[in-house]
Each structure stands twice: as structure tokens, then as C-alpha cells.
């Protein structure tokens, strides 16, 4: 049977305020435990900041600095430099942000840090929208998905952040999903061993934002991977693409059916989305073959 185990040494604490059944909390459990004790965290406004905080308490055992939405990567760069100045080169700087803070508002800071190849581990919790503020669209929202600000569905495609980051030729980019917990843990472990800029994008089906059932986040992320909507990949040095799951085993339909944000779609819309997926997938396959 498929294995789901990963190391848990209590780095993430119960009593946090994530929604019941939240995939972001589940991912944090895996990530914080893989990162371990020798780490300093940086976090910007987003669901993850709320899950971590609730003054004067924290759900993480490592210290976190809460900063502004525009500057996650810039803050993390500064923290790393300060640690280096103290002789703590090996301490991991873990930078957590949402897709709004990554694809949109924090993109400039991220691009600059990537260009400088800062030694930070940047995690983007990609729930495809501004979710803790009530569910508005971001540039990560996929085409056709309904959000508070695109009630009839977004008309443009999801921004391809992986290719943007790859263009910076940073040492490590990866995607991950709560349907593959040991894979997520292994990617964090691997990133820890690499000096320079590492970015891991985790797909986070948002319970209220996507309209999925309380018990269904693993199922939805699994369908996202199996349908090729959210492929599991690694990109090394911006050039070497590896597909961790190299087969699409599902059409897009079952994935869409699990989510209220797609329930207004016509069959034509659904077919269009399938074409988007196929096109992106084929492009990845080509890059992985190169």
C-alpha cells in the first residue's frame, strides 16, 4: 500500500485556528517537522500567518517574524544575512507566503531575491486566490474559476510562476501536494541541503474558497495531481525538469466536480479547461525530455 508516513517531532502545535480539515495546516505539519529546530521563519499576511499566530500564541516551535505582504523574500534575505553575520550559516530561513503574496504583491521582492540567489527556503501556499480576506482572485487563480471578484469566472489563465522562477536559474523549484505527504517532506529535506534560493509551491484546495467538503482536501489535491492540473515536478538550476508523477490518469472532470467554484461551467468551458491542461502538460513533458 502507498506510504503516507513522514517525520513528526512536534514542531507544529495543536490548537491552531486553521479551518477544520485545512490542507495548509496539514502541509505546515509536514514542512515544519522536515525543517526542524534549527530554523527561523518569516511570514507575511495570508492564511498561514493566521494559522501560525493569534497573539500571544504561536503554533510553531521555531521563531517567526510577521512582516508585510509585499516583502516576504526581502525580509527573509535580511534575516539570512543577519544569521550569517552571527556565524549561523546552517540555520534554515523558512519564508512562508500565499499565492497573493507570491504571484502578485510580493513578486518584485521574490524576483530580486531569486536574482541574488539568496539562501532561503520559500514556500508558497497556493490556494489560487486571496483567501483570508474573503476569497478574491489573484494572478494564480485559474481560468474559469469563480471568486468574490470574478463571480462569473476568471477570464485569463493562471500565471506560470514556475517558468518565471526558472528564468532566474535558481537551484531548486518544486511543486507539492497533500496527496503525496512523503514527497512533500522529501522535497523540503532536499531543499535544506541546497545552498541558494529554493521555492516550493504547494497546492492548497481552500475549503471555503474553492467550495470543497471538510474531509476532501486530500482527495481534491490527489485529483489535481492525477488529472495533470497540478503536476508534481522539480526544476533544478532552472533547466533540468523532472516530472515526479509522469502520467495523467484522470480527465479534469472529477477534479472540477469536487469544487463549487467551477459549478457554473458549461460543457464547453470544461472542454476548454481540459485543453489548457493538456497543453501545459505537453509543454512540461517536452521540457522534461530536453
Amino acid at each position: 500500500m502507498k506510504d503516507t508516513s513522514y517525520k513528526d517531532e512536534g514542531q507544529f502545535c495543536s490548537g491552531h485556528v486553521a479551518c477544520a480539515g485545512c490542507a495548509e495546516a496539514l502541509s505546515m505539519r509536514v514542512i515544519l517537522n522536515a525543517v526542524g529546530e534549527d530554523a527561523v521563519g518569516v511570514v507575511v499576511p495570508s492564511c498561514v500567518a493566521i494559522i501560525l499566530g493569534g497573539h500571544p500564541t504561536s503554533s510553531a516551535r521555531i521563531p517567526f517574524i510577521h512582516g508585510v505582504l509585499e516583502s516576504a523574500a526581502a525580509m527573509a534575505s535580511g534575516v539570512k544575512q543577519a544569521l550569517v553575520a552571527q556565524g549561523k550559516e546552517d540555520t534554515t530561513v523558512l519564508c512562508l507566503a500565499g499565492d497573493g503574496g507570491t504571484y502578485d504583491i510580493g513578486l518584485q521582492a521574490l524576483s530580486s531575491a531569486a536574482e541574488r540567489n539568496e539562501d532561503i527556503l520559500y514556500i508558497c501556499f497556493d490556494n489560487e486566490g486571496y483567501m483570508n480576506t474573503g476569497g478574491q482572485k489573484s494572478s494564480s487563480t485559474p481560468r474559469a474559476a469563480a471568486t468574490g471578484s470574478t463571480p462569473h469566472g476568471k477570464t485569463t489563465r493562471k500565471k506560470n510562476l514556475i517558468e518565471i522562477l526558472a528564468a532566474h536559474r535558481i537551484p531548486y523549484i518544486a511543486t507539492a501536494s497533500t496527496s503525496h505527504l512523503p514527497d512533500l517532506a522529501a522535497k523540503v529535506e532536499k531543499a535544506k541541503t541546497i545552498r541558494g534560493m529554493k521555492v516550493i509551491i504547494v497546492v492548497i484546495p481552500c475549503l471555503p474558497g474553492w467550495g470543497v467538503a471538510d474531509n476532501a482536501v486530500a482527495k481534491v489535491s490527489r485529483l489535481a495531481v492525477e488529472s495533470g492540473v497540478f503536476p508534481l515536478i522539480e526544476v533544478e538550476d532552472g533547466l533540468k525538469y523532472t516530472m515526479n508523477v509522469d502520467e495523467k490518469t484522470q480527465p479534469i472532470g472529477p477534479y472540477l466536480d469536487q469544487q463549487k467554484r467551477y459549478r457554473h461551467l458549461s460543457n464547453e468551458d470544461r472542454e476548454g479547461l481540459q485543453l489548457d491542461v493538456d497543453e501545459s502538460w505537453n509543454r512540461l513533458v517536452e521540457m522534461a525530455d530536453r
Partner: peptide
């Protein structure tokens, strides 16, 4: 100082949500 985070979230009883 009470203005610093000095507790874990474990004191919060989220069992009441269920």
C-alpha cells in the same frame, strides 16, 4: 513582556468547534 509571543497554541481548545 506580554507583548511578545510566549505561548504555544496548545492552550486553545479547538475541540469545541466540532
Amino acid at each position: 513582556s506580554p507583548i511578545w509571543t510566549h505561548l504555544t497554541s496548545e492552550g486553545r481548545n479547538t475541540g469545541t468547534w466540532r
